[in-house]
C-alpha cells in the first residue's frame, strides 16, 4: 500500500487480552507485517538476543520496532528498555511504550531509558482503536526504517 517492505514488530505484553487488541488492529492494517508476541521481560530479551528457544534467526528475525508494556513478569519493562539501549546491536531499534500507566515517574524513566514514544492504553474502545490506527499509519506506513 505505502511501501512494500514488511515491518517486523516485537510485541511485549503479558495480558493476552491486550495482545489480542494489538493484533486485531495491526494485522487488519497490513497483512505483510509480522508481529511477534512475548509475554514477559525475560522472553523479550531472549528473543532480541536470539537466545534459548528464539535462537533461530529465520524463525525469529530482529524486529524493526518494539512495542513494550511496562509491567511485565520476571523482568520489568523499564529494565528491558535499559538493556536494549545498552546493547549496541539493539539500541537503534525504536521502542514504543504501550502501557496503562499514566505515572509521571514511568514516563520520565521510559524516556530516560531511550523510549522513543510513550502511549497510554485508553479505557475506551474508540480511542484505543484510533490510537492503534494512528500508530499503524505512523510507524508502519510513514516511518522509514533502514534495511
Amino acid at each position: 500500500m505505502l511501501h512494500g517492505n514488511p515491518v517486523h514488530i516485537l510485541l511485549v505484553e503479558d495480558d493476552p487480552a491486550h495482545a489480542e487488541i494489538v493484533f486485531r488492529n495491526l494485522t487488519d492494517f497490513r497483512v505483510a507485517n509480522r508481529i511477534f508476541h512475548v509475554e514477559d521481560g525475560q522472553a523479550a530479551l531472549d528473543y532480541l538476543n536470539q537466545e534459548g528457544k528464539y535462537a533461530d534467526p529465520q524463525a525469529f528475525p530482529r524486529p524493526a520496532l518494539i512495542l513494550l508494556d511496562l509491567r511485565l513478569p520476571k523482568v520489568d519493562g523499564l529494565e528491558v528498555l535499559r538493556r536494549i539501549k545498552e546493547n549496541p546491536g539493539l539500541k537503534r531499534i525504536p521502542t514504543v511504550v504501550l502501557t496503562t500507566s499514566r505515572a509521571e515517574l514511568d514516563m520520565v524513566s521510559a524516556y530516560a531509558n531511550g523510549a522513543c514514544s510513550y502511549l497510554v492504553k485508553p479505557v475506551d474502545f474508540e480511542k484505543f482503536t484510533r490510537l492503534l490506527e494512528s500508530f499503524g499509519y505512523y510507524w508502519l506506513a510513514w516511518n522509514q526504517f533502514p534495511d
Binding site: A17, T100, S101, V123, F128
Partner: peptide, 21 residues
C-alpha cells in the same frame, strides 16, 4: 497505589475494548 491503578485499569481497558469489538 501505582500498581493498583495500573492493574485495576488493565482489565478495564480489556473490558471496554472488547465491548467495542
Amino acid at each position: 497505589t501505582y500498581t493498583v491503578s495500573h492493574d485495576l485499569k488493565s482489565p478495564l481497558v480489556t473490558i471496554q475494548t472488547f465491548l467495542g469489538y
